[in-house]
Design a protein around this nucleic acid. Sequence first.
DNA 1: TTTTTATATTGCAATATTACGATATAGATT
DNA 2: AATCTATATCGTAATATTGCAATATAAAAA
Lengths: 110, 110
Amino acid sequence: MGTTKTDFFTDNQNELAILAKALGHPARIAIIEYLLKVNTCICGDIVNELPLSQPTVSQHLKELKNAGLIKGNIEGNAICYCINESGFEKIKVFFQHVTTHLEKRNNECC
Amino acid sequence: MGTTKTDFFTDNQNELAILAKALGHPARIAIIEYLLKVNTCICGDIVNELPLSQPTVSQHLKELKNAGLIKGNIEGNAICYCINESGFEKIKVFFQHVTTHLEKRNNECC
DNA sequence: TTTTTATATTGCAATATTACGATATAGATT
DNA sequence: AATCTATATCGTAATATTGCAATATAAAAA
């Protein structure tokens, strides 16, 4: 009990849920928006930008990376983070799917 | 401690996070996909479709409704659920924003 | 009115998430 | 080598989520 019943859902459903869940925190939305603005940055930049401690930011970065939404490359001392397009591509496909379905019918609802 | 520091983020960041969080579970992705297929349905239909108990499905429906992703209308005995387009519109705008930013630069990353 | 049907709510156990201080790691600088 | 800089990990407390049995609610059917 308490655990998500992952086995009973499709791989695609689980993948989409993981991607959406990773974006399900305002700090992680803020990190993505910041990365869109500055293109690349290091963890310390985000620590300066957000009202969160360094360990907390590091944890959020890890979750975004595990979900496949950002990439991190070692650059000497620091780690250079940037957006991982392929992760966003997957969600985009889902939302296009939703939009296409909704456009077909004329907003008929209950 | 343990609570998300909502006050330190913008309304838009919090709203997007709430929408994404609502989609951050495979059962809720499955519910949305099912609603896309059948247009409208009642809670019992989803209980038959998913490997989850009635109270659990009811709870997931509540979360999707609170986030603004589905609508529920009382129809006699039952409640008729359907997709709420305006919720999806908000996320779509966010992803368009991401896509536009990413297309501008030529995939330059770290 | 009793029963059936459809959903929501309550209460609870198991697990997951959020946040941060303290500490570890690892490359750069002096 | 000692120190500084940048980030990750560990440990832990507070809170949230997931799932379901039991129960409540409310309209429909008998």
